[in-house]
Amino acid sequence: MSNAAITSSPGVRALARKELRELRRHRMIVATAIVLPIAFLVLPVLNLLLYEPSRAIGGPDFAVGQAMFCFFLTPVIMPATMAAYGIIGERDQGTLEPLLTLPLSDRELLAGKVAAILLPTLGASFGIYALYMAVVALAVEPPVRSPALDWTWPFGLLLAAPLLALFSTLTGMFFSARSKDVRIAEHLSGLVLLPSMLPVLLIVTRTVEPSVLTWCVFAAAVAAIDAGLWRLVVRAFDRERAISTA
């Protein structure tokens, strides 16, 4: 079954719906999904609203770059907690064993879980960025407004955020499938995810110019990593191991 066929399978859609209901009812995940995007919206907006050229370190481009880093960080950090719960959460509440008796292949099972994590992550990531753009357009002073509204930023975010979110989700799922404890999975994910933000840091600080070409090359590289990571996660998911580490 191709990856496209997997995501359209009724079983995957049913699992994704179940996962979304589950995430919605999980206090810690809901708290993370609310607090993190709010923080990543408020900090950049305040940074730009209170921008004063005389006191600022670096120019307006640097201030906008700092703000943009938060928006690229959201799709990476937000899925990590949810993904860590993906397999371990099911095991801890005793639902993994019956779940594995359902007619879902390994790929369908993982695809359903990944889809349920990507939807709220991308909703929150794009939502806070849209609010940020609105505030910038209405309230930020012209010296900062112009670089903040540079169209290469939304282009880069639209292109890279889904791929970064997928990277973070798959990393979390990998460790969730192989770890015994949610916190261990979260910590290990963090160890992989934070260094991987270095290329984004280079772009937002304009060490590498944020052009269309830059974003396309970056997106292609992340997409290639995601494809490899997906294969790795599918291979790492071992049903016997998953139920026997309970």
């Binding site: 009724p10 079983g11 859609r13 049913a14 699992l15 719906r17 179940k18 209901r21 589950e22 009812r25 999980h26 509440q93 005793g94 639902t95 064993e97 019956p98 359902l102 007619p103 879902l104």
Partner: peptide
Amino acid sequence: RPSLYDRHPVEDNVRFWAEVHQ
């Protein structure tokens, strides 16, 4: 063990199974 999704209503627990089995 019953192994239900405790936070979900009873019918959602059973409906999920029905949906996956199409």
